[in-house]
Design a protein around this nucleic acid. Structure first.
Length: 491
RNA sequence: CGGGAUGUAGCGCAGCCCGGUAGCGCACACGUCUGGGGGGCGUGGGGUCGCAAGUUCGAAUCUUGUCAUCCCGACCA
């Protein structure tokens, strides 16, 4: 079977690429580092986006849209920010093309040079804060709770489908507050929204934490994150929420009058998740037969495949399926009836397995006589015979069960792959073995963190929230430490 | 930006060493038998061999250059 997919054991990276390409999520494009998101992959993204959008609105946010282009000068206003992004920006320098006077096609018109170059947004803090300056005068204008769904461009050296592409889709929340505490509360609130989404919807367990200084967002005071573990033991940052302090307000001169008519800079947050989550979803649950999608996000939750000889049987099956589809719809189950006669049942079985459809129903003349169908679940590959009476309800229960099961499986895997290291030798041994998260003491210095990264390629993924405080010694330097942090090799 | 590969039909590849009418599998079209795990048989359509120059009577094949993409590293969501 699955003859087209490289196994995880054989080549994990290739397995991942195979799933994306052969599962029909995305394709390479004519542009280096950029991908085409195909309808099936985009449907998955739409489901994620819709749910997140709902959660943002439930927490009081509104959507808006800011320009794709950012004047170059904006980017330099916040020192740490420009340093973080300068190396990976696409720059627009001209606004017109012309026919090459020497023949041979079209060239950039040298006359059409822009006075000030425009940066294609790598993130929108600067253009947004430049705008907020005109929106905020008084504490009455606060808080400002805005989200934007957009594309951004980061000119990365090396790209990977969904995990790191030159252009990607994301959402970025940008909020402004009257007090530091309020902004911190917002930062944590959105971190919790992300964690809830990852766990409840993606069925992907995550660890909430705060980043070390080295891993902090360019321009933030504190960066909070959710970290997930992939099946190869590597970590993947699935979402970030930043407390920006007054850094951007100061850079863009955004002040407000408080109740006492005292002027102060506003406090800011920003938070985002991207199409990278699709990569996380793929790597968290899928197997060597293809994708395994969580029912709550799957574009197709149930596929029905007819098995028949001749029109007579087909007609009988069509009739029955029509009823079933109505019942599925009534329960909000997204079902697809694939009666395409071009492909035979066996082909379809393999195809939908590759696409990760949670439940497959096969229905043939033989089943109709007995008033049953064959139900197969993607996560365990288990098949069972189920009565047509009450089928929709049974499937509803099954979908929930699958959602739970893949979460539990991922959770179990992750928990089994978090280990403690108390010496450098242990640390290295663990990393070169199963990998995973390694909980270890660290002396808190950026220097030590860099050295550990250099020696082992592992980085501090996060300092978990509500972390246990305990005395210990840094695994590298032996200097005193108050708590363990999570290390891992990461995507 | 360093290292490694690859560009030949829509996709995956062979052919290149040793130059002589461009091939295979899948997909596609038509017909037919089929149908409970990627079907069988038959017929058929589709390619300036990435691009450019050179060597040659003759280049997918040899030479030089060039462009592009992918993979592995350093950088990052």
């Amino acid at each position: 079977m699955s003859k087209e997919i490289t196994s995880r054991q054989q080549d994990y990276s290739q397995w991942y690429n195979d799933l994306i390409l052969k599962g029909g999520l995305a394709d390479y494009s004519a542009v280096r580092g950029c991908m085409v998101i195909k309808p099936y992959g985009y449907a998955l993204w739409e489901n994620m986006r819709d749910q997140l959008d709902k959660m943002f609105k439930e927490t009081g946010h509104q959507n808006a849209y800011f320009p794709l282009f950012i004047p170059k000068s904006f980017l330099s206003k916040e020192a740490a920010h420009v340093e973080g992004f300068a190396k990976e920006c696409a720059v627009v320098t001209h606004y017109r093309l012309m026919n090459d006077p020497n023949g041979g096609g079209i060239i950039v018109d040298p006359e059409a040079k822009l006075e000030e170059e425009l940066i294609i947004r790598p993130t929108s803090e600067t253009i947004i804060w430049n705008t907020y300056k005109t929106w905020v005068q008084s504490y009455r204008d606060l808080p400002l709770l805005i989200n934007q769904w957009a594309n951004v461009v980061r000119w990365e050296m090396r790209t990977r489908l969904f995990l790191r592409t030159t252009e990607f889709l994301w959402q970025e929340g940008h909020t402004a507050h009257a007090t530091a505490q309020e902004a911190i509360d917002e930062t944590i609130q959105m971190l919790n929204v992300y964690a809830e989404f990852a766990e409840e919807w993606m069925a992907m367990p995550v660890i909430k934490g705060v980043k070390s200084i080295n891993e902090r967002f360019a321009g933030a005071v504190d960066t909070y994150c959710i970290e997930a573990m992939m099946q190869d033991g590597k970590a993947l940052q699935a979402g970030t929420s930043h407390f920006l302090g007054q850094n951007f307000a100061k850079a863009f001169d955004v002040k407000f009058s408080d109740k006492q008519n005292k002027l102060d800079y506003v406090w800011a947050t920003s938070w985002g998740v991207s199409t990278r989550l699709i990569g996380a979803l793929v790597m968290a649950h899928s197997d060597d037969e293809g994708l395994v999608l969580p029912p709550k996000l799957a574009p197709i939750q149930v596929v029905i495949i007819p098995i028949y000889k001749g029109d007579e049987q087909k007609n009988l099956i069509d009739e029955k399926v029509k009823d079933l589809m109505l019942m599925f719809k009534a329960l909000g189950i997204k079902a697809k009836y694939d009666d395409n006669d071009n492909n035979r049942p066996g082909w379809k079985f393999a195809e939908y397995e590759m696409k990760g459809v949670p439940v497959r129903i096969a229905i043939g003349a033989r089943d109709l006589e007995k008033n049953v169908v064959e139900v197969a679940r993607r996560d365990t590959k288990e098949k069972m015979t189920v009565s047509i009476d009450g089928l929709a309800e049974a499937i509803h229960v099954l979908l929930n069960d699958i959602q739970q099961n893949i979460y539990s499986k991922a959770r179990k895997y992750r928990d089994e792959n978090i280990s403690k290291a108390d010496t450098w030798e242990e640390f290295e041994k663990l990393l070169d073995g199963a990998g995973g998260f390694i909980s270890a003491h660290w002396d808190g210095s950026a220097e030590t963190e860099n050295k550990i990264k250099e020696l082992s390629k592992a980085t501090i993924r996060c300092i978990p929230l509500n972390n246990l405080q305990e005395e210990g010694k840094c695994i590298l330097t032996g200097n005193p430490s108050k708590e363990r942090v999570l290390f891992a090799r990461a995507y």
